[in-house]
């Protein structure tokens, strides 16, 4: 089979018609792939940060390409699919060939070479804001602060957990987000697994008193989107570390997760009575 490609152009301003080739859909023996330009314009080049953000979102949307002739709906009106072109028959790596010979190449130091990605925990925290429970959710659970004086030595690898809610006496939920649409998702999955596994081992070794152990729960919340393979990996990876995986794309799972956070958050928040004094 002769491989072929269609360039995807980003249109920063539909009124002036400028097109920037940012990617290509490549059809080869292995099916459809997306080749992303090694050189992409940065925010300064595009003039405004939101224009650059839009281009990043267009690129992210291309991960769901399933038709050589049609862009995914989510790319929106500022992306255009160019005409079909052939790749020479002797080329063994069609995607690499398109990146090298068709799309803008990274040949200078002053260009943005890779898609910028926000921190996983920053992206995850937006879920709590949108669900209106962020007032209960704390960032960065640091075990050496919260579990100071633990009965067993705390291993160094027990890193911070992205988000947590609750308090020692009402229970603590330790939460890590997974974002299937993120570049480097596989790396995130391994990192989160290792971190939660080390927490599970520490808790099981009696790192915290029995009551606190029972009260400390691990959660992985998987944000919507991404391909099915990534989602399935994320949703099935954490059973052996006793971390419940929450599929936030499911309304029922999302609702009960949000309720759990709200309940714990309210229980952990000092209440102000009508006289103005605080109690808990």
């Amino acid at each position: 089979m002769t491989a072929k490609y269609r360039i995807v152009h980003f249109v920063p301003d539909p009124f002036n018609g400028t097109r920037i080739p940012v990617a290509a859909i490549v059809a080869g023996a292995g099916g459809l792939s997306v080749a992303t330009a090694a050189r992409l314009p940065g925010p300064a080049c595009l003039g405004q940060a939101p224009v650059h953000a839009t281009m990043q979102m267009v690129l992210e949307s291309l991960s769901s390409v399933d038709d050589f002739n049609v862009l995914p709906v989510s790319v929106g009106p500022q992306a255009l699919l160019d005409v079909e072109r052939q790749i020479p028959g002797e080329v063994s790596d069609p995607v690499g060939w398109v990146v090298e010979h068709v799309l803008p190449r990274a040949d200078g130091p002053a260009v943005t070479r890779a898609a910028k990605s926000h921190h996983r925990d920053t992206q995850g925290y937006r879920f709590f804001e949108t669900c209106k429970v962020s007032q209960y959710v704390h960032q960065r659970f640091q075990p050496d602060q919260h579990w100071a004086g633990a009965p067993v030595a705390m291993p160094r690898k027990l890193g911070t957990i992205s988000h947590w809610v609750g308090a020692a006496k009402v229970g603590i939920l330790l939460m890590e987000p997974l974002i299937p649409t993120r570049p480097g998702f596989e790396r995130d999955l391994v990192e989160v697994y290792q971190r939660l596994a080390s927490y599970r081992a520490f808790l099981d070794r009696g790192g915290v008193p029995e009551g606190a152990k029972q009260n400390t729960k691990l959660r992985v919340y998987v944000l919507p989107g991404g391909n099915e393979r990534n989602r399935t990996s994320a949703l099935g990876a954490f059973a052996d570390v006793e971390a419940l995986t929450v599929d936030t794309a499911s309304e029922s799972a999302r609702r009960s997760f949000v309720e759990e956070i709200r309940d714990l958050g309210v229980a952990a928040t000092p209440q102000t009575d009508l006289s103005g004094s605080q109690s808990n």
Binding site: F15, P50, Q123
Partner: peptide, 20 residues
Amino acid sequence: AQIPNVVHWAPSQAPLVTNI
């Protein structure tokens, strides 16, 4: 009115919408 810098809705955007 043309809204600049837009894409179309995708489920992955749900947690990021500020005017839910």
